[in-house]
């Protein structure tokens, strides 16, 4: 059987929110080590990879690896009923045809329980190699969210270039061009406000702003976001979840013909 108890249930709610605009049906893979998700959007240009270690849970038992096939719009409806401070409990039998969800709140004394029918989802899995990227940038996730949101008024494609000058986001459209440059900045006492740029060689790639905006739904999960780029490769946009896991997005670059 599978049983997991997460004191801060809100983390799981935020994970669901971070992927539900990209994919509809998803398998949550449960193993003795972690809960994980790998899925692509319907156009297969973006991929989400989520991992939440068993150490994130107060109680974690998984006798046999299993996949929980979920419809995210339905899961999201159930999580709307979860309170901010609720503890979440997930339970499934090895046959995995339904998932039990419980939201408990000690303060108010409430226990809400739901039974969700599971689906068999055929999903293509890709092997994503652990590549050394030419540029790695760490920046406040709220800044990244603001930049990709603001640039949407200029156009639908964002050029991200990493040079020794800094990290530049540019968008061009009918009304003109906008550029936002982020320089390395480690002046603040708070590490989460730092911008660090680790560049082996300059990289310049184009991406669909629509997708970059989808990815920023993970902003509440992490104060910092890590961007990794190499020439001609999908960008990696990683939101670490404390020391317990991550949500990573991969997006294929737009190539110029």
């Amino acid at each position: 059987m599978f049983e997991a108890r997460l004191a801060n249930g809100n983390i799981f709610k935020m994970i669901v929110e971070s992927i539900r605009e990209l994919v509809v049906d998803v398998n949550i893979d449960c193993s003795t080590e972690e809960l994980s998700i790998q899925c692509m959007d319907s156009a297969h240009v973006a991929l989400v990879s989520m991992s939440l270690s068993q150490s994130a849970f107060d109680h974690f038992r998984c006798d046999r690896s299993l996949s929980l096939g979920l419809n995210l719009p339905n899961v999201s409806k159930i999580f709307k009923m979860m309170g901010r401070d609720d503890t979440m409990v997930l339970k499934a039998e090895d046959s995995a045809d339904k998932l039990m969800l419980m939201f408990e709140n000690d303060k108010s004394g409430t226990i809400a329980d739901f039974e969700l029918k599971l689906m068999a989802i055929e999903a293509e899995q890709l092997g994503v190699p652990d590549t050394a990227y030419k540029c790695s940038i760490s920046m406040p996730s709220s800044e990244f969210q603001r930049i990709v949101r603001d640039l949407q008024v200029m156009g639908d494609t964002c050029k991200i270039s990493c040079t020794k000058e800094g990290l530049k986001f540019s968008a061009t459209g009918q009304i003109g061009t906008g550029n936002i440059l982020m320089r390395q900045n480690v002046a603040s006492e708070k590490e989460e406000d730092h911008v660090t740029i680790d560049m082996e060689e300059p990289v310049e790639l184009n991406f669909a702003l629509r997708y970059l905006n989808f990815f920023t739904k993970a902003t509440p999960l992490s104060p910092t976001v890590i961007l990794k780029m190499s020439p001609g490769l999908p960008i990696v946009i990683e939101y670490p979840i404390e020391q317990l896991g991550h949500v990573k997005y991969y997006l294929a670059p737009k190539m110029e013909e």
Binding site: H44, V45, Q125, L126, G127, T157, P253, E257
Partner: peptide, 14 residues
């Protein structure tokens, strides 16, 4: 003019 390849052209199928 831009074109976008699917992730299959970058990553191997498992």
């Amino acid at each position: 003019i831009f074109f976008q390849c699917t992730l299959r052209s970058y990553f191997q199928k498992k």
